[in-house]
Design a protein around this nucleic acid. Structure first.
Length: 881
RNA sequence: GGACGCGUAGCUCAGUUGGUUAGAGCACUACCUUGACAUGGUAGGGGUCACAGGUUCGAGUCCUGUCGCGUCCACCA
């Protein structure tokens, strides 16, 4: 057979195989009534994205599922695509323009959008190429983009549907405003971070009362320019006298009402709250309740506007300083105290968010949330790990309306037109296309709403818009609902929850059955990997250095279900070494395989073959492993699947079976089993390590009429009748004996080349038979020249060891240090004594013998017998020294 | 303020529904370049399973509390 290179070198192999898979259409799936569908939609990466370890984990997991299901015979569709990422992409293109000294306003809206599309043409598919490097078997022919015609159409359709249903409205509310991106954000896009701020105590003079003040505490003194009232709790005795009075706003001179409202916390600050309805959500509510004026004192960039009087033009933080100075000058400033509190930050540029009154479009969420809550409560959608169910339900039951309009240019433009001929607020036309004239007044003076929709307003349709919705395509009918959604916890609210609502509302069915939430990839210190922190490990570097399979295997093997992953570069050696081990085992087998022997009908062979214990054992271990791995993959226990394959291939197949088979390798049964176990192991490992498995598989002798790649081969069938607990326990016993002999050799520094004589003192037929039948490989693997089995007493000057039913003697006349041997055996005796004591105590305890299951008690008793007999043997050995 | 996760070998982590002697990888020690593999082999050392109670015949595993670390959510200005 063909000889393989000495070490596995992924360079060259990976790209070659990937191109071939793709060219042959192995990734493509289409509706096939004869097969069951299995589908996953990718969490679409941003077009600005570059592959990071989070993707490496996320997309490897999905690829494992898809490859596994494809092999199991499902029509497996992995729908890929990218997200236009409104704010993020606009920022990137604006930065590019800035380098040329231009602003987007210089270009104008149309030209700017053209620039973004150009940028997208050039860089937007970087991430797709990188996913290919990862080995992802996505159905690239179907690749979608959230700004594609069809998907954009779906977005407009959904907007109109919700508007007509009364679930979309426009209103002037406090929203999260990013002064840098100059747009509104949803609550989810405003990320709370603890900030060390100050709480400033300021005197507000009471009107017409000399030298009396109300002291308020605020963290944002600059907003006082928009104050319209002071609120106190009606129960607050300190402020009883304020009834019927008014307060003068310092620096501005406006008269402020005093209002009484239980929302004010008596314990916080001074118990008096300055009310700024245009700049704070609580104040906004107070303002509505008490009919207060709303004074917005800021521009879009958070500088003070003309309503801010002398402070106009100052940035919010400059204004804060200036106002504090002026207050000090007038003796109205009392003190500032350090105050740590959570403040919202823009999730795109991390600028401090300014809560601010602004007219925006909103989606009413409560009606959408209700069926989405039920779907999860009834178990139609399951979260893995299960604990995320609670997180989802808590959020959903407290859901608030979704601000969906953004004051940027890149995105789906809101399909709303305003007629200037109609009275303010009445000439709203919601329509996909621009109307010629206003249906109400006939005016042609119509302008579209300048805003675009939140990026997530297209993402939430992803599981069905990608399959062609609102058109009733065959793909949509066949592949929807999808089977699994694999994503990170950060995105549960942004995306997962909203997809569930959208799926039920627009498609009338849940979008996926399982949601697998994996952990966050962190660096070795536990910090989230991010480019700005400079602690990233670039997956592409790791692929170049260790290979894709190594990257995939390593990250999977160290990621327990739903736990965060702590990565360091050294961890990729695990996967690289494993790929190399597999490569070399295959290399050995291929060097020795006689093609004719293994091309014969294997089923016929197994019917007639008399298998040796190691043969039965390795087959049993393989099918046990296969059965467990299948179960693990179905339950999203990827690490357990990976680790049990590793354990099987390395420590059972390579360490034992191949070593044992070296003697019998030219025999038919060894040939067949080596081939069969290797070939099936490759299939079992393929979803996790797609490249090395296919490369080796192609070199195996096989019927050329079959599949041309392991990726479209079938998942091995678990042959239960091959699983033999008897073979497994017998083999375990022999392995223990071999290890004991090796141990003696090692302890007495016997040269690895030197063969020794070994004596097995046995008093029972079963074990004697077992030893005799397997004498060959025992001698070989333990380097024993002659093996005597029977009732044989210990020769003088022999080292001894007791394993289960066997006493092992290795005659080492003259080589043994008797004192050292005594200590060694004594240590062993102590260990056994200790265990006997503990088991005896248990067996004497009636509570145990009566209450524990019979099996457990029997097992303990048997264990005790074994230990006692071992102890006797040890003692007699000790006496003979 | 609420919710969740984690604390197991020097390091990074597994540990199924409670049941013999708690595992792996890396690191460490000794020996080995043996015809698959030094990205390797053989043997070995190393753990009061954070702490304190409780349930149980039996707890790393279940319950309560404490301490430490981390994450998410939240309108104390």
């Amino acid at each position: 057979m063909e000889e393989l290179p000495k070490a596995y070198d992924p360079q060259g192999i990976e790209d070659r195989l990937y191109k071939e898979w793709e060219a042959k259409g192995h990734f493509h799936a289409k509706p096939d009534p004869k097969k069951k569908p299995y589908s996953i939609v990718i969490p679409p990466p941003n077009i600005t994205g570059i592959l990071h370890m989070g993707h490496a984990l996320n997309d490897t997991l999905q690829d494992i599922l898809i490859r596994f299901k494809r092999m199991q015979g499902f029509e497996a569709e992995w729908m890929p695509g990218t997200d236009h990422a409104g704010i993020a992409t606009q920022n990137v293109v604006e930065r590019k323009l800035a380098k040329e000294g231009k602003k987007r306003q210089d270009l104008g809206r149309e030209k700017f959008i053209e620039e973004v599309w150009k940028w997208r043409e050039e860089y937007g598919s970087t991430i797709i190429r990188q996913l290919k490097k990862l080995g992802c078997s996505c159905d690239w022919e179907r690749t979608r983009f959230t700004m594609d015609e069809g998907l954009s159409d779906a977005v407009l359709d959904v907007f109109i549907k919700l508007y007509e249903k009364g679930l979309i409205y426009r209103g002037n509310y406090i929203i999260n405003w990013c002064p840098r991106c100059q747009t509104a954000l949803s609550d989810e896009e405003s990320q709370h971070r603890d900030v060390d701020g100050m709480l400033y105590h300021i005197k507000y003079p009471i009107k017409a009362a000399k030298d009396s003040f109300v002291i308020v505490a605020t963290t944002r003194p600059e907003t006082m320019l928009g104050d319209v009232a002071i609120a106190v709790n009606p129960k607050d005795k300190r402020y009883k006298d304020l009834k019927g009075k008014a307060v003068m706003l310092p620096l501005v001179g406006r008269e402020l009402k005093i209002i009484f409202d239980p929302i004010v916390d008596l314990k916080f600050g001074t118990g008096a709250l300055k009310v700024t309805p245009a700049h704070d959500p609580v104040d906004f509510e107070l303002g509505r309740k008490h009919n207060l004026e709303q004074i917005n004192v800021m521009n879009d960039d958070a500088s003070i506007n003309s309503l801010g009087g002398d402070y106009e033009g100052l940035d919010r933080f400059e204004a804060r300083e200036a106002i504090l100075e002026d207050l000090k000058a007038r003796g109205l400033f009392i003190k500032s105290e350090p105050h740590r509190h959570a403040v919202g930050h823009c999730y795109r540029c991390h600028t401090m968010v300014e809560p601010r009154l602004s007219p925006q479009w909103f989606v009413k969420m409560k009606p959408l949330a209700k069926p989405a809550i039920d779907a999860v409560k009834k178990g139609k959608i399951k979260f893995y790990p299960e604990r995320w169910t609670k997180v989802y339900l808590d959020w959903m039951t407290n859901i608030r309306d979704w601000c969906i309009s953004r004051q940027i240019w890149w995105g789906h433009r809101i399909p709303v037109y305003y007629c200037k001929g109609c009275k303010d607020g009445e000439g709203i036309i919601v329509s996909k296309a621009k109307p010629e004239k206003c249906p109400k007044c006939g005016s042609a003076d119509i302008a579209q709403d300048p805003d675009v929709l939140d990026t997530w307003f297209s993402s939430w349709l992803w599981p069905f818009s990608t399959f062609g919705w609102p058109k009733e395509t065959p793909e949509l009918k066949y592949f929807y609902p999808t089977n699994a959604l694999v994503t990170a916890q950060e995105i549960i609210f942004f995306w997962v929850a909203r997809m569930i609502m959208a799926g039920i509302e627009f498609r009338g069915a849940i979008p996926f059955k399982d949601v697998y939430i994996h952990g966050t990839v962190r660096d070795i210190t536990g910090t989230k990997m991010s480019k700005s922190l400079g602690n990233v490990i670039d997956p592409l570097d790791m692929i170049a250095k260790y290979g894709t399979d190594a990257l995939r295997f390593s990250i999977i093997s160290i990621t327990a279900q739903g736990q965060d992953v702590f990565l360091s570069e050294g961890k990729f050696e695990l996967g690289r070494n494993f790929a190399n081990k597999l490569w070399n085992a295959s290399r050995f087998i291929l060097m020795n395989l006689k093609e004719d022997e293994v091309k014969a009908d294997l089923c016929v062979f197994f019917k007639g073959a008399k298998l040796s214990l190691p043969d039965k054992w390795i087959l049993s271990r393989f099918y046990s492993t296969l059965s467990y791995v299948t179960e693990c993959l179905d339950e999203y226990k990827f690490n357990e699947a990976a680790n049990s394959i590793y354990e099987f291939i390395w420590h059972e197949f390579c360490d034992w079976y191949i070593e044992i088979a070296k003697v019998t390798i030219s025999e038919k049964s060894s040939q067949v089993i080596l081939y069969k176990v290797l070939e099936k192991s490759l299939r079992m490992l393929h979803p996790i390590m797609p490249f090395v498995t296919d490369e080796i598989w192609r070199k195996l002798p096989r019927e050329k009429t079959g599949a041309d790649s392991i990726m479209i081969e079938s998942w091995p069938h678990v042959q239960k009748e091959m699983i033999s607990k008897d073979a497994e326990s017998k083999m375990k016993e022999l392995i223990e004996i071999i290890v004991a002999i090796r141990n003696i050799r090692s302890v007495w520094n016997i040269d690895p080349q030197t063969s020794v004589e070994a004596i097995m003192n046995v008093h029972e037929g079963g074990i004697e038979k077992l030893l005799r039948e397997n004498e060959g490989f025992i001698k070989r693997t333990a380097r024993v020249s002659s093996l005597k089995i029977g009732k044989i007493s210990k020769p003088a000057g022999a080292a001894a060891s007791v394993v289960g039913r066997v006493e092992i003697y290795i005659p080492l006349e003259g080589l043994i240090d008797l004192a050292k041997e005594r200590t060694r055996l004594k240590k062993e005796e102590d260990r056994i004594n200790h265990e006997i004591r503990s088991i005896s105590a248990r067996l004497k305890d009636k509570n145990f013998t009566l209450k524990a299951p019979k099996e457990v008690v029997e097992k303990q008793a048997a264990r005790k017998d074994e230990l006692v007999s071992q102890l006797e043997k040890l003692k007699s050995n000790l006496e003979q020294i």
